[in-house]
Simulated scan of single mutants.
Amino acid sequence: MVTFATHRSLAEELERAFSLQSLVDKSLKKAGPTPSQKTILSGALYHLSCEHASSMLLLIEAKKVGSALALARPAYDALLRGAWVSYCASADQIEQISDKKADFPGNKDISAGVEKAAPAELRSTLSVMHRAVPVAIRHGLTHGGVEQLMHRFDGTTIRANFSSDTVIGFVRLATLVMLGSAIGIARQPGGDLDPIDVLHLFLSSFTQDDTEARAMIDRLADEC
């Protein structure tokens, strides 16, 4: 399970995440990519990914942690597919998918294409998410695997029993999803967002004690 060292409570982490969400929402509203089948389909996927991340935060706040964690996979998948449409898919593939005449390729093929063609900051964001919550864990969380079931007994009663570190880790994962979505839209042709501004926006939500997170974003900025 994904965890991060932190000196803040879950309530403080959520407050920070909701503040970042508000900033990302405002940034996305400024984006004006040139309309095309590619930007419409990829933009919809980025937006869906960001919506899943926002829902994760709301569910965690409502103490529906299992349902929140179940959204980690669809949030990641939507972001990954958005990157694939932006940088890998052919015009024919985009048309076929948009017209419901074909499905998306499998994630293994999509990931291979994104790794070769997507910009560094988007690749890095996806990579951090994938390493933090590998595909088998994402699958189990979504489809009622042991990753969910073994956290539903506290020794006395059956109830959700995720550690606070795990929950905080997924709050931060949701912020990474929002970061990736904002970067994806910022990279759209004709958009008004600068990817570096998006990275700085994300970085500004972390305080000085988040050395790991700050180092990660600094590396992303250096690769742009």
Rank of each mutant, 00 (worst) to 15 (best):
Leu69Met: 05
Arg8Asn: 09
Gly144Glu: 04
Ser204Arg: 05
Glu95His: 15
Ala215Arg: 11
Leu45Gln: 12
Val114Glu: 01
Ala112Leu: 15
Ala75Ile: 02
Gln208Glu: 15
Ser42Tyr: 06
Leu199Ser: 08
Thr157Trp: 12
Arg131Cys: 08
Glu13Cys: 05
Val177Thr: 07
Leu141Glu: 10
Gly106Val: 11
Ala120Ser: 15
Gly180Pro: 12
Arg81Phe: 06
Leu220Ala: 15
Gly82Met: 07
Ala17His: 03
Val85Tyr: 04
Ile196Leu: 13
Asp154Phe: 09
Met56Ala: 00
Lys38Ala: 08
Arg219Glu: 15
Gly184Arg: 06
Val114Trp: 02
Glu212Phe: 13
Ile137Ala: 10
Ser181Val: 05
Ala62Val: 05
Gly140Ala: 00
Gln188Met: 10
Glu147Arg: 02
Pro134Ala: 03
Val177Lys: 00
Asp194Met: 05
Lys116Ile: 04
Asp218Val: 04
Thr3Gly: 01
Ser9Asp: 07
Ser27Phe: 12
Leu69Phe: 05
Leu57Glu: 11
Ile97Cys: 03
Gly145Ile: 06
Glu223Thr: 10
Leu69Cys: 03
His139Ser: 10
Ala117Asp: 09
Glu95Asp: 14
Ala215Asp: 11
Gly144Ala: 00
Leu176Gly: 08
Gly43Trp: 00
Ile137Arg: 08
Ala72Lys: 03
Ala72Ser: 14
Gly43Phe: 02
Gly144Lys: 01
His7Ala: 11
Ala160Cys: 08
Leu69Asp: 01
Gln188Arg: 03
Gly32Asp: 10
Ser127Lys: 10
Met129Tyr: 03
Asp197Lys: 03
Ser9Arg: 03
Ser181His: 02
Val135Lys: 09
Met150Glu: 09
Met150Gln: 14
Leu48Ser: 15
Ala89Glu: 02
Thr142Met: 12
Thr207Lys: 13
Gly169Leu: 01
Glu51Val: 13
Glu51Cys: 11
Ile196Gly: 01
Arg81Thr: 01
Lys30Ala: 12
Tyr46Lys: 01
Thr39Leu: 10
Glu15Ile: 04
Ala5Ile: 13
Arg81Cys: 07
Glu121Ala: 10
Ser42Trp: 05
Val114Pro: 05
Arg123Asp: 02
Ser124Asn: 14
Gln37Phe: 12
Arg73Ala: 10
Asp92Thr: 15
Gln37Thr: 10
Pro195Thr: 01
Phe104Cys: 06
Gly190Ser: 08
Ile185Gln: 02
Gly106Arg: 12
Ala186Ile: 07
His7Phe: 13
Gln93Phe: 11
His52Ala: 14
Leu69Lys: 01
Ala174Glu: 03
Pro195Ile: 00
Val2Asn: 13
Arg214Gln: 11
Leu126Ser: 00
Ser127Ile: 00
Lys64Thr: 06
Ala215Gln: 09
Leu203Ile: 02
Ser205Arg: 06
His139Glu: 09
Met56Cys: 03
Ala62Glu: 13
Val198Ala: 04
Ile60Glu: 04
Gly144Ser: 03
Pro35Ser: 09
Leu28Gln: 07
Asp109Gln: 11
Tyr87Glu: 11
Leu220Cys: 14
Glu212Pro: 06
Trp84Arg: 07
Leu59Asn: 08
His52Trp: 12
Ala72Tyr: 05
